[in-house]
Design a protein around this nucleic acid. Structure first.
Lengths: 236, 236
DNA sequence: CGCCCCTTTGAATTTTGTCAAGAGCCGTGG
DNA sequence: CCACGGCTCTTGACAAAATTCAAAGGGGCG
């Protein structure tokens, strides 16, 4: 289960520059000094919230990686989004809706739990916060639309190649290697493919020297080669 | 090309109850009496705006049906969403982003063109408008996520059956028949399928008496039968 | 009436999924 | 330290699903 670590100090938070408070002027923090969201920690595979439950809090990811998933009654699962540090999630409550997805920690995580009513007040009082939240909502929408294009219009190999390129652009790099804390099954759930299909493509590409992998990290060794796979004809 | 019909009078607009002005108190309309968005009309297949262009306006659909689409460089197309009367669209400009999709009229349409700067002011001044816009953004996000589940986790027949059920729930009914102004190709673009696959399933279901079709209208004749097809096991 | 476009249908092919078995990896406990 | 059990990952053979290609049918409109 989740473990309450204490209360967050947004002003001095080490990921403040990534959060919705990034652009709030230093002086303005005095006005919100009563705002100290709980900081929770989760272990790998623990659930942060469940689809369908009442959304009384939104969350900001401080550390680790989180997946947002949806499940069909027959058990087939779709990963909707993988979150990184600074991401705001679980904000369905702003439209008085229950959570539309289940949030699960992919690695050990720390999240700030932001009470919706307080966040609503902050949003009203500080235009910077409102703007930041709007930007994030629209960014999520844009990325969801981009993903619909991936899922609806591309084939297995194209989806996988495009996923790898996107992942490696964003991820933090150690010596050219990027952490990939997703199992084959999870990559499949994200891209609408089976474990075996994912494994086959990755193995092929490793054999061809296009990508490398070791201990949960990957590396793209032939960027142009992979880019060509993204979209059979044209530069996607 | 689009044809400017004149200036809209939001207060007396016949779809005001569906718009973001629905909950704005009557008295408050005096404060926005200078706000008269252009009303444009489009014919079938005309483009309202193009993906990638600067977003200086948002739009409200007054009459007709609009599709939002995205295209891959190789020409494969995905329909992201089909809009109905009252829907707000093209609001990427609120995050200073260009349009992320191309909006095309599926039938003859009338849209209100709302200048972003004015809309921004209205949003700041009237909490009802801000709330309405937030609700719509989050609704779009939710529906995009639901669609990702459809595209990623369901097979052809399931997607098509689930699309038909959704469409018939919302559409205006004439004698039990619902307008379906989408070609087989467009249904395919929406669901990530080919024309032929769509046609085969629909023909099968027509033969089995599960659905009926005539002159661009459809009817679900066996609701429970179709519902069973939506998700091989379980009630989706 | 004839043309054009959309739809339907069939057959062959490709893509992806399913099932099954084996390989590699890692932590636990002897 | 090594062996074992439980994972995930890989690979192959086969089956199912969906696409592609091709041709014919149907309906509306000039």
């Amino acid at each position: 289960m989740s473990h309450i670590q204490g209360r967050g100090q947004c002003r001095t938070c080490h990921i403040r520059h990534l959060s919705i408070f990034a652009r709030l002027p230093e002086a303005r923090f005095e006005q919100i000094q009563g705002f100290h969201p709980a900081v929770l920690s989760f272990q790998t595979d623990e659930t942060i919230y469940h689809q369908g439950t009442i959304a009384a809090h939104a969350y900001t990811l401080r550390k680790g990686i989180v997946k947002l998933t949806k499940m069909l009654p027959n058990g087939r699962t779709q990963i909707l989004r993988v979150l990184q540090s600074g991401d705001l999630f679980g904000f369905e409550g702003f439209a008085d809706q229950p959570y539309n997805q289940t949030a699960i920690a992919l690695t050990a995580c720390e999240v700030c739990r932001l009470p919706l009513s307080e966040l609503n007040d902050l949003k009203r009082q500080h235009i910077e916060i409102e703007q930041a939240m709007t930007n994030r909502w629209l960014q999520h929408l844009r990325e969801a639309e981009d993903m619909m294009l991936e899922l609806g219009a591309k084939k297995a190999g194209e989806r996988l190649a495009s996923f790898l390129m996107r992942w490696c652009e964003h991820g933090p790099v150690h010596n050219g290697w990027v952490d990939l804390p997703l199992s084959r099954a999870e990559i499949g759930e994200l891209l609408g493919l089976t474990i075996e299909t994912v494994s086959r493509f990755l193995s092929d590409w490793k054999r061809q020297g296009m990508i490398g992998e070791q201990r949960g990290m990957i590396q793209i060794q032939d960027v142009t080669g992979l880019r060509e796979l993204v979209c059979s004809s044209g530069s996607c």
